[in-house]
Each structure stands twice: as structure tokens, then as C-alpha cells.
Write a protein that binds this DNA or RNA. Sequence first.
DNA 1: CGGGCGGTCAACCATTCGGTTGATGCGGTG
DNA 2: CACCGCATCAACCGAATGGTTGACCGCCCG
Lengths: 214, 214
Amino acid sequence: MAELRVLLVDDHPVVRAGLRAMFSGFEDVSVAEEAANGDEALRILDRELAVGGRIDLVLMDLQMAPGMDGVTATRRIKEQYPDLPVLVLTTYDTDADILAAVEAGASGYMLKDAPPNSIRDAARSAAAGQTALAPEVAARLMGRMRNPVPSLSAREIELVELLATGMSNRAISRRLFISEATVKTHLVHIYEKLGVDNRTAAIAVARGRRIIRS
Amino acid sequence: MAELRVLLVDDHPVVRAGLRAMFSGFEDVSVAEEAANGDEALRILDRELAVGGRIDLVLMDLQMAPGMDGVTATRRIKEQYPDLPVLVLTTYDTDADILAAVEAGASGYMLKDAPPNSIRDAARSAAAGQTALAPEVAARLMGRMRNPVPSLSAREIELVELLATGMSNRAISRRLFISEATVKTHLVHIYEKLGVDNRTAAIAVARGRRIIRS
DNA sequence: CGGGCGGTCAACCATTCGGTTGATGCGGTG
DNA sequence: CACCGCATCAACCGAATGGTTGACCGCCCG
């Protein structure tokens, strides 16, 4: 098989250097380009693919300080280049992050503290059109499948995330373009599922269960 | 000058590989050892320095998933090897992290998204006995000096910690053996100091400023 | 010693939140 | 098709929380 050409998207030069060093040990994978944020990644893809260049895989961090975040960048990339696989490589494995990445069209979800071999294997799988999930991530998804009762819906997780930022019901309703009544209905469902009876307790439980990032 | 021998402490293999790759470009700096957490770092130092080995600088991450965190590890290292400089290299630049690192005896505080040159220069400075601060970090410290943020009292911090567990005012009053009225008074003061107007926002701000640990 | 600060408490009122009932529409599944 | 889960909205009420005023005490510091 031809050499795999990868675009790295991560705001940390140190991480980019680490991945570059890691891949340099394999002859069938090479880092073709690097971007520090989503905007830069899109510019590189536009430029590179327009002139007949080749990129086989995007390695995407989710947390990026300034500019476009990883989820948005992933969504944009999949809109413009649906066949280009995007493998998320990040630090956290919360439900909120995983669901957002999957919904945005990611081909896989790996954690940065994984051993180099796993990351390399995941890159190859994703480039081959397969789905590559870290064991921890796969376990969380399986848990949601098997046991849908205690797990929140995607919309409810969205609510809890806003809850945790300290927003009032009114503020949340405006942010999500829904009525305050709907917010309250969602909250009641969330309280039931988490076994609590107020918002601060809901946040505490959601943090403990890694539904949202701590 | 003799070659600088560095101990890397970071739980991410990718980051360690990146730093190793970065330093490999300079002949006067080399990565002598790597540790994935604080315990491992201390074991390596004990073993290495006992047999006459040489370590000139510790590069320390603050966030490490399992085992000893970076601040504790730094404190322990400075207790046992006061002359061994520890340069903190982390992702976040919150006041509490910086102050905790400085209090623990760190010789400097750099951010991972800094350009490789800056990190290399900081490593050299720290090894030479100087203090190395990232520009962003220096700015935050200066800002605190000029414009001290109203800080919470010990009692108020106690309140916020209970708040974050999801307890009601009544529950808090019972836990602390004070009246509900007193709880409310404390909360009003906390809201003023943090610039918010409800409990969940207070928790969010306190987390953001690392007043309470997540 | 006087004033400031932190901690305690009370009474009062407005606002927000929690909880219920009931209802509509949509999409997937047996 | 009928059912069910999800998301949406409304009206209503009691409880909790937010905000204000005012007060007392102990401690430290100038």
C-alpha cells in the first residue's frame, strides 16, 4: 500500500512534534502537514487538495485555545471532504466530547495517553475506512447501548453542560432557542435519571460519572 | 558547558516523544530519563542519583491522570533534592496552578503551546539557576500584584466546596452547625467576590479559578 | 482604644427553581 | 398501525434561593 499522508491538527507544537516523531518510525505513514487550529487545517486542505496534493487522514485534537475548536473543524471538513477520514485524538473521554465528535462525523476517537502502537494502529484503521475507538471510549459507548436507562440523551447532556457553566433556566432557553418550560421539562428528566433533585447535585453527579468534563 | 541531562515527567507518551524529539536537535541538552507520574519520577531520582548518575533538570507536567500530581511531586523533589531545578511545563495558566507550583518550589512555569525555542531556552535558564516564566504567566503574576482579586475566606471556601457537592442551604447549615441565615449571608459575600448572582455560577467560577479542585 | 473584618443570626420580600399535569409532533419499532 | 421515547410548550403552585437591612460578637491591627 502507498504511504499514508497525515494532516496533524493540534495547537501544541510539542504534541505535533511527538506525533511526527512517533510516525517517523513507520515507513508507511508520514506527517504531510501540520495545523495549529481548525481554520488553518481547512486552509491547508483547500490549498493542498486543490493542486492535486494528497491527504489520507486528519488527526484532530478537540481542545484548541484560540480559533475554531476541533468539533467544528471536524464538521466543516466532513462537509467539504466527506471521504476524508478524521480521527479525533484528545485528552478527555467524557460522554459530551465523544458524542459531539461522533455527531460531527469523526471516524474514530483515541486518547493521547494511549501507547504509541495503539495510536498508529488507529490511524491505519481510520485511513482504511474503518472505525477506530480507544478501549475506554468503546466501553463507554457499549455501556450506553446496553443500559440506556441511566444515560442522558444528547440533548440532555447539552443541557447539563450549560447547567455546569452556571446559566439560569432563562439563559439556557435563550441559548438553545427553546422555551423556559422546555428547559424545566428537560431538567426534571435529568434529575430523574441522575437520581437527584436539584441542579447543583445534577452537576456533581454528571461530573462524577464523566458525563461532562470536569 | 557539559551536556544538560533532563528528566521528563508527563503521563502522555506523545508529549514525552515530542519533547525528546525537540531536544534531540540540540547537542547540549538530552533526555536522560522519562517518568509517567510523580511516583515514578521520585523512584528514578532515588535510583539514579544514588549510584552517582546525573540529572540537571526536571521537566514536570502538572496534570497527571493516576498517581501523584505534579505539584505534590515537585514539592517532594525539592524536599529531597533542593538544588535540583524543576521546570513546570503544563497546559493551563490559572492563578492557582501557578501559585501552587511556585509555592512548591518550581524554578519556572512554561506552557505547552509555547514555541519549541522558548521551551528550550527556559530549560537552559532553569538549569542555570534562573527563573523561567512564560510571558503569559509573568503577565498574570504582575496583574495579581497590581490588582489583587478579592479572595474568599477559609470559611467561604468551605461553603463553596459543599455547594459544589450539590447540597442545599439547609443541608449546608446542618453540616456546618450554623443557621440557614448564615449560609445565605456567606453566599451573598461569595457571589459579590466572584462577580456572580447564583450558586451554580459561583461553582463554575470557583472551578475556573481553581479555588476548589475538580 | 477604635475601627475594620469575619462569622453569626433574624425578618422580610422578590425571583427563581422544582414538580405536576397535560398536550403536540416526530421518528423509529414491534 | 399503534406504541414509545424524545423534544417541545403551557399553566400552575409550593419550596428554595437570592437580596436587603440591620444587628451582635470576637479578633486583630494601627
